[in-house]
Nucleic acid binder design. Structure first.
Lengths: 205, 205
DNA sequence: AGGGGTGTACCTACCGATCGTTAGGTGAGA
DNA sequence: TCTCACCTAACGATCGGTAGGTACACCCCT
C-alpha cells in the first residue's frame, strides 16, 4: 500500500463525489469529512473550491494523456488496430466509471470551457484517426460515405455512453438471470459491431 | 400570445435553469427572480424544491409521451419507417436542447430512480422496435448479428448525444466557414448512416 | 550537542451570505 | 365570506472562505 499524499487523497475523494453528486452538490465539508481533515485544512491544499474542480479535471485529462501513446501507435492503420483503439477507449472509461460521469458533468456545467479542453485533448488522435480513415477510403477498405470526424465523434460518444449508462444496464432484460456484467458485455459487443460494420466495406466474398 | 399559468412559467424557467446549471446549482431565489415573483410565492405552487424537480421531469416525460403515438405507428416495419422513427427522436431532442441536458443530469443525479423511469417510458416502443427488428431478421432485411435491445440503446444514446453535444459542434472544423448548423447537419447525417448501415443487410446488387 | 528560525500541515473559531422553508399576513375576485 | 395568489419577515442550517494559532520536522549556526 503506497502512502499517498493528502492532496491526492482529496482529489480522489473529490472525483468520486463530483461524479456522484456533482460540483454544486458537493460541499467542502463533505470532502473534508471524506478524507478525515477539517474544512480549513482542505483549503490549505487548494486556493478555493473552483481549484479543486479544475485539478480534478486536470487529473482526469492527464490520465487520458498517459494512455495516448498506445492509442496513437495503434491508430496508424488496419482493421485489427481499429479494434484496439476502440478497446483502449472502452477500457479507459470502463475501468473507472467516474471518469465518464465527471466528463459529462463538466460538459454540462461549463460547455464553452470544455469545448476548448476537448479540442486540445482530442486534436492529435482525432487527426491521426481521421487521416487513417481517409487513407482506408482511398484503398477501398473503408466505406466511401464515412464522414471521418463525425464518425469518430459518434463512436467516442458511444464509448462514453456505455460507461455512463452502466447503472442502467440490463434495463430491458425481463429475467433476473442476466447479470449486470453480462448486459454490459453485450452492449460493448454491439458497439464494436456497429462501429466495425459502419466503417469498413464488406469483405469481398 | 397565450396567457400561461404561473406554475407553467415556473416549470419552463426551472427546466432552462436545471438544464444549464443543474438542480443543485439552481436556487429557488433564481427561479423566483426569473418569473418575477418572490421566493415564498414560488413555494405556494410547489411543496418544496424537490417537487419542482419532479414536475420538471414529469413535464419532459409527458412531452415525450405526446410524441409516442406517431413513433409507434411508424415502428411497425420497413426501411423508410426506420428513418422516420430516428428522425422523430432527433426532432424531439433537437427542437429543445434542454431536454437532453435535463435528461442526462437526472441520469447522473438519480440513477436508480431514473432506471425505473426510463424503463417505464421506453418499454412500449423498445418492445415494438425490438420485435420489428426480429421480424426483419427472419425476412433477411436486417443483419443477423444485430442485438436488438443493445442496438436500440446505442442509437438512442447517439440521438441524445447529438443534442447534448450541440455546444461542441464544429469542434474539429479548422475553418470558420463551417457554421454550427452545418456541422450539426453532418452529425445527424452520419448518425443516420451509421444506424442504417449497421442495421440493414446490404441491398442485393 | 543544543538552540533558533522556517516551512508544512493541520487546527479552532468565526465571518457574511445564501440556502430551503415557515409563519403570518394582504388584497382582489367569486 | 372564503379562497387564491401573492407578499414581508424571519427561521436555523449550511455555504465557501478567512484569521490566527499550534505541533512538529528540518536546517543552520554556534
Amino acid at each position: 500500500m503506497i502512502e499517498q499524499s493528502m492532496k491526492e487523497k482529496i482529489l480522489v475523494a473529490a472525483t468520486a463525489a463530483f461524479a456522484q453528486r456533482g460540483f454544486e452538490g458537493t460541499s467542502l465539508q463533505q470532502l473534508a469529512d471524506a478524507v478525515g481533515i477539517k474544512k480549513p485544512s482542505l483549503l490549505y491544499h487548494f486556493r478555493n473550491k473552483e481549484e479543486v474542480r479544475s485539478e480534478v479535471l486536470a487529473r482526469l485529462l492527464s490520465q487520458w494523456n498517459a494512455r495516448l501513446p498506445e492509442i496513437l501507435i495503434a491508430a496508424t492503420t488496419g482493421k485489427a488496430r481499429f479494434e484496439a483503439i476502440l478497446n483502449a477507449g472502452l477500457d479507459f472509461f470502463g475501468e473507472d466509471r467516474t471518469r465518464a460521469q465527471v466528463l459529462v458533468r463538466e460538459l454540462l456545467d461549463r460547455p464553452e470551457e470544455m469545448r476548448v479542453v476537448i479540442a486540445e485533448y482530442s486534436k492529435v488522435w482525432v487527426t491521426a484517426l481521421s487521416a487513417a480513415i481517409d487513407e482506408g477510403k482511398a484503398h477501398g477498405r473503408i466505406r466511401q460515405d464515412v464522414e471521418p470526424k463525425a464518425f469518430i465523434t459518434h463512436t467516442a460518444s458511444l464509448v462514453v455512453a456505455v460507461a455512463f449508462l452502466e447503472p442502467m444496464s440490463g434495463l430491458f432484460e425481463p429475467d433476473e438471470s442476466t447479470t449486470t456484467s453480462d448486459a454490459e458485455a453485450i452492449w460493448r459487443d454491439e458497439l464494436r459491431r456497429i462501429a466495425r460494420v459502419s466503417l469498413f466495406n464488406a469483405r469481398p466474398q
